[in-house]
Computed example of a mutant assay.
Amino acid sequence: MAGRVVLTYFDGRGKMEPIRWLLAAAEVEFEEVFLKTREQYEKLLSDGDLMFQQVPLVEIDGMKLIQTKAILKYIAEKYNLHGKDLKDKAMINMYSEGLLDLMEMMMILPFTSDKKPKLDNIETKAKQRYMPVFEKALSGPVYLVGGKLSCADVQLLECTLMLEEKFPGILSDFPNVKSFQGRMSRVPALSKFLQPGSKRKPQPDDVYVKTVMEVLRLKF
């Protein structure tokens, strides 16, 4: 079907979740193909669908896109969520990539054995390195850049919710960020994505971890 958007990944958050969030913000319907076996992955490789032998894979506008940041930028540009000029785009990219760095620390947590020191490191960096940046940026504006919703806003909402899952009350020292989270959660498209039954994925469980490790033949 023309115009169909198809996401190929595991049935869990990982690097696809920011893409799901951004498509939801843009009110774009998408289908999902879940990787469950090594054979599925090897077929993608043999078909030449994975340029660097990695997922996520997004089929959109007749293209097969890989690399999370490239996919996010394409969607943000296509749906006017990437700023009005080069300066806006640069600021959005800096915020966005910082948030992706922090979220990636949380994404890999389920695959690690000794979680306590890693959790402590995430909490410290969130409090000392990342959230102060957004607390300052949101001291007056409703949105992070240019007075309108961007992909960075969507990722900040996703990130703060992930942080609160691990560290309840972590935003108590960041009232501007907490207020922002409340505002963004009421944006109709994002509010819909937060409701039960949406394509938002739950926190990773043992089944998700086992599937990823078996399909990709990972060893930790």
Rank of each mutant, 00 (worst) to 15 (best):
R4L: 12
L149W: 04
G182P: 12
I122D: 04
K148Q: 14
G169C: 11
D205H: 08
V6E: 12
R20F: 08
Q53L: 01
K166V: 15
T211N: 10
M1V: 15
P56N: 07
W21M: 12
L44Q: 06
A90S: 09
D49V: 13
D47I: 02
V154G: 01
P18E: 08
M63K: 13
G14P: 05
P168Q: 01
R186D: 15
G3S: 13
L144G: 08
P168Y: 00
D11R: 06
F30Q: 01
F52A: 08
F52G: 02
C151G: 07
T124P: 00
F111M: 02
M131W: 12
F52P: 13
G182M: 14
Y208N: 06
S96A: 14
Q181M: 07
P188H: 14
T124A: 10
K89E: 06
R13E: 04
K116N: 03
L45Y: 05
I60D: 02
P204I: 01
G12A: 12
L7G: 07
M107P: 07
S150N: 12
N93C: 00
K84W: 07
V207Q: 15
H82L: 15
L100N: 01
V209H: 14
I170A: 08
R200N: 11
K118L: 15
A137V: 06
L50M: 12
P132Y: 05
R13S: 08
A70W: 02
I108A: 03
M103Q: 15
I60G: 05
K118H: 09
L44R: 07
A2E: 14
V33Y: 14
G83T: 05
G62F: 07
G83E: 04
K116P: 04
P18Q: 12
M131L: 15
K118I: 08
L109K: 11
T124G: 09
E158D: 11
Q67I: 01
V58F: 14
G146N: 07
S46D: 11
D114F: 07
S185A: 12
E135A: 11
A152S: 05
L99W: 03
T8R: 04
D206I: 05
E165W: 10
Q54H: 10
P18R: 12
A76G: 01
P168L: 10
P56C: 12
E59H: 09
P132K: 13
D114R: 10
F30L: 00
P18I: 09
